[in-house]
C-alpha cells in the first residue's frame, strides 16, 4: 500500500495539472481577498482571522484534479499493469483517494496562507473565535466526502469530460432536487415534520448550513447533525467507490 502511495505521489509531483491547479487556487483566493480587503469599510473592525474563518475549501478545483488523476490511470491503461503486478484493487483505490484528499488539504493550507499574506496588507491579524474549529471540522469532513464522491464518479465513468460534467452538474442539480423534495414534503406532509426540518440540510454540502447563525444553545445540535450527515454520506460514497471497481473487470 505504501509503495502504491509513494508512486502516486511521485506521479503527482510530475503532473502539469498539479501546478496549474495550484496556481488557479492561489489566483482564486487572491482576488476575493484583495477585493474584500479594499472594500471593507473601517478596516480596523475586521481582521484576517475573521476572513480565515469564513473561507471554505476548494471543492471544484480538487475534484478536477481527482478526476484527472484517476481517469489517467484508466486512459493510459496503467491500471492493467498495476493490478497485474499483484497490487490489490483496494490498495489501488485507497491510494488514489488518500492522494486526492491530500491534494484537497494542500489547497486548503495554500489558500489560508494566501489569505493571510494578502489580507495582511489591509488588516490586522486579530484573534480566532470558536468558529475556526467548526469551520476546520466542516472543511475536513466535507472535503473528504466530496473527494470520495468525485473519485466514485471518475471510477464509474472513466472519462474526464463526462466525470467533470457530472460532478459540476450535480453540485447544482442535487441541492435543487433536495430543495424541491423539501417543498413537496412541506406542502403535503407538513404535519409529520417539525418547523425546523429542512431536507436540503441532508445533502452533505449543506450539512452545516446555518451553523454560524444559530443561537449559542442550538449550535451544538446543528454541529452534531452536520457531522452525522457527513459521516453517513462518507460511508455511502466509500461503499460506492469500492463497489464500483472491485466487482468489475478492468478493460
Amino acid at each position: 500500500m505504501l509503495d502504491v502511495l509513494k508512486s502516486d505521489f511521485y506521479r503527482l509531483c510530475r503532473m502539469k495539472s498539479f501546478y496549474v491547479l495550484s496556481l488557479l487556487a492561489v489566483i482564486e483566493r487572491v482576488f476575493p481577498a484583495v477585493l474584500l480587503g479594499l472594500m471593507v469599510p473601517q478596516r480596523g473592525n475586521h481582521t484576517v482571522a475573521e476572513f480565515l474563518e469564513g473561507f471554505q475549501g476548494h471543492f471544484l478545483i480538487s475534484s478536477i484534479f481527482c478526476v484527472l488523476f484517476i481517469v489517467e490511470e484508466f486512459r493510459s491503461r496503467r491500471v492493467l499493469v498495476i493490478l497485474s503486478s499483484g497490487i490489490s484493487r483496494v490498495d489501488f483505490l485507497l491510494s488514489k483517494a488518500i492522494l486526492s484528499c491530500c491534494f484537497y488539504f494542500y489547497l486548503s493550507i495554500l489558500s489560508k496562507i494566501v489569505i493571510v499574506v494578502t489580507c495582511s496588507f489591509f488588516l490586522k491579524f486579530g484573534t480566532f473565535t470558536n468558529i475556526i474549529y467548526f469551520s476546520l471540522l466542516e472543511e475536513i469532513l466535507l472535503g473528504i466526502v466530496w473527494i470520495l464522491f468525485s473519485s466514485t464518479i471518475a471510477v464509474l465513468f472513466r472519462s474526464t469530460g463526462l466525470s467533470l460534467t457530472f460532478v459540476f452538474f450535480s453540485n447544482i442539480a442535487i441541492p435543487a432536487v433536495f430543495a424541491g423534495a423539501n417543498s413537496i414534503l412541506r406542502a403535503y406532509f407538513s404535519s409529520y415534520f417539525s418547523k425546523d426540518f429542512n431536507l436540503s440540510n441532508f445533502w452533505f454540502r449543506a450539512a452545516f448550513n446555518g451553523l454560524y447563525d444559530r443561537p449559542e444553545n442550538e449550535v451544538y445540535s446543528c454541529l452534531y447533525t452536520g457531522i452525522l450527515v457527513s459521516v453517513v454520506w462518507l460511508c455511502f460514497f466509500l461503499f460506492c467507490y469500492f463497489w464500483s471497481f472491485t466487482k468489475r473487470d478492468v478493460k
Binding site: 509503495d3 502504491v4 509513494k6 508512486s7 511521485y10 506521479r11 510530475r14 503532473m15 502539469k16 489517467e72 493510459s76 491503461r77 496503467r78 491500471v79 492493467l80 499493469v81 498495476i82 497485474s84 503486478s85 497490487i87
Partner: peptide, 25 residues
C-alpha cells in the same frame, strides 16, 4: 506482463515511467 499494447503515462518521460514503476513495486 504486457497486455495487448504498452501501458505508459504519456506525459511522463521514459525514465519517469520506469521510475514510477520501480517505486510502485
Amino acid at each position: 506482463s504486457i497486455i495487448e499494447r504498452p501501458s505508459l503515462y504519456p506525459t511522463m518521460t521514459v525514465e519517469q515511467n520506469l521510475e514510477v514503476h520501480r517505486i510502485l513495486l
